[in-house]
């Protein structure tokens, strides 16, 4: 009887904790565009999936790419997306029956010399994954290594949003949320497109403070980033997906100021991709992009394109890619 009472108390306690957590998740966890991105990934077929960092998010416009190549693509890049995240995105697409023909990975040295930051970005993609083997694998390989609070309290990195509680709840009860609408993501600095592309708009405060990008350094190479890039390459080979790597161009003044770091990154990525038989395009060292590297075309020194120039870049990049569309794979 005593044990039954204890068991009952424990069950009630667990139910209470789960209940409070769900309520707090609903009230605090915001409606992010990652939710829309992942929904698009698993509900439609795409020939091409772009993965990578914020440079890719702002620099590669699937609509422009598709108009050149006659394809259907989606931009699944994200600021804070590490190789381990990119790997699971591609896996999820395959598991849900939407295997792409190619994956274009935008490589940023900053993600190969640091480890995933346990900030708000840590589980932002994971939270939007549907229940699947990929999600389990993702949990085992990334989330499990994180702070236990990331698993037990998914809302905890958003507790600062306590004061915008009403807005968060409103956005979640809105039909937009249920239908994966995107209008709530628009703000004066950017427009989110349903393809996943973020069009950056000119703001007067841009470049008022000089930012320094996270630079390549041979001593700081993160083995986990390398490992997951290689895993992605192997997975693509096994699935018959063509993997292409690209480093988007950054302002010329930036590469000049940190020339040894950018050259080091180029050598590093060239070797990494060659070892896996992956094509690599480093647009910082390609003639056809040299006139697209004026600082005025960018939001910052780090290299995030304004929308207009992102479109120009994407068009030229699509044309420079060495293949014909559509491609028949075995």
């Amino acid at each position: 009887m005593r044990n039954f009472k204890r068991f009952a108390v424990l069950t009630l306690l667990l139910a209470f904790v789960i209940g409070v957590n769900s309520l707090l998740s609903f009230a605090l966890y915001p409606y992010t565009y990652s939710r829309v991105d992942i929904h698009n990934l698993i509900s439609e077929d795409h020939d091409t999936i772009f993965v990578g960092s914020s440079h890719g998010k702002c620099g590669l416009n699937p609509e422009v790419f598709d108009s050149v190549c006659g394809t259907v693509s989606t931009n699944q890049c994200l600021g804070g997306e590490y190789p381990i995240d990119a790997y699971h995105i591609v896996r999820l697409a395959c598991e849900t029956g939407h295997k792409p023909k190619q994956v274009i990975y935008e490589l940023d040295a900053g993600y190969f010399v640091t480890e995933p930051n346990e900030g708000a970005d840590f589980a932002i993609l994971y939270e939007e994954f549907p229940a699947s083997f990929t999600k389990l694998h993702y949990w085992l390989t990334k989330i499990l290594d994180g702070d236990f609070r990331s698993t037990l309290f998914p809302w905890y990195l958003y507790r600062g949003k306590l004061f915008s509680l009403k807005d968060t709840i409103a956005s979640k009860t809105d039909s937009e949320y249920k239908n994966y609408g995107i209008s709530s993501f628009a703000n004066p600095a950017q427009i989110y497109h349903s393809s996943g592309f973020i069009e950056r708009l000119v703001q007067s405060s841009d470049k008022s403070v000089k930012d320094t990008p996270v630079l390549y350094s041979a001593e700081d190479i993160c083995t986990e980033s390398e490992r997951y890039f290689n895993k992605l390459a192997e997975f693509c080979r096994e699935e018959g997906i063509r993997l292409i790597a690209v480093t988007t161009p950054v302002p010329e003044v930036t590469t000049q100021e940190h020339s040894s770091a950018y050259e080091g990154a180029d050598q590093y990525f060239t070797a990494l991709t060659k070892a896996q038989g992956v094509e690599y395009y480093n647009c910082n060292y390609m003639e056809e992009f040299s006139d697209l590297r004026d600082l005025n075309y960018y939001v910052d020194y780090d290299g995030h394109y304004y929308g207009t120039y992102a479109n120009l870049f994407t068009e030229r990049f699509a044309k420079s890619l060495d293949f014909n569309f559509p491609i028949a794979y075995n």
Partner: peptide
């Protein structure tokens, strides 16, 4: 006792700093 435990338990995400 349960109130104390739950308070401490939820204090960790609510009042603690993230490891980043």
């Amino acid at each position: 006792r349960l109130a104390v435990y739950l308070a401490l338990f939820f204090a960790l995400p609510c009042l603690g700093q993230p490891p980043s």
